[in-house]
Design a protein around this nucleic acid. Sequence first.
DNA 1: ACCCCGATCGTA
DNA 2: ACGATCGGGGTT
Length: 170
Amino acid sequence: MTDTRLKREFFDRDTVQVAQELLGKRLVFGPFAGLITETEAYVGQDDPACHAARGKTARNAVMFERAGLSYVYMIYGMYHCLNIVTENEGFPAAVLIRGLCLEKDEPGLHLDGPGKLCRHLGITREDSGVDLVTAEDFYLEDAPLIASFDATSRIGIKQGTNKLWRFVVT
DNA sequence: ACCCCGATCGTA
DNA sequence: ACGATCGGGGTT
């Protein structure tokens, strides 16, 4: 816990805005720490690529909860993906963390890809629903805003490709 | 109970 | 560009 930890208000905002501003922020998970290099926004019931597009289910329920919670799901039967829940409670949205440049444990190692990221840090569904605003060793720290990034279509989806909601540090 | 498919990754 | 891979979510 430090005074530079991101508070609830940071996450309780427009998801695309949060996805952009999360670039360069520091993710801490146990002994690991690194700067976020790539994110994607998934926004509400009207976003066909969002897990909550067809309403609340057992899997996506945490997306409907308060901003700042972790949302981890399993994909392709073998990988996990880490998201941070955003916006008002009851509005299902989250930011997928797709890239991380490690500073601690293995400095300089660039984890590019959400599956590789979770596999390396050891993040699983057990880590879903954690409140990153208050948890002891799983949180986000403020860091200088990164204004230089690309916006592209999101990766690996079949619907909603028209939205340029993937953000990559240049 | 069970079938189908995916917010991926690694190799070609 | 494409195929391997398989757990479990969503529907029966």
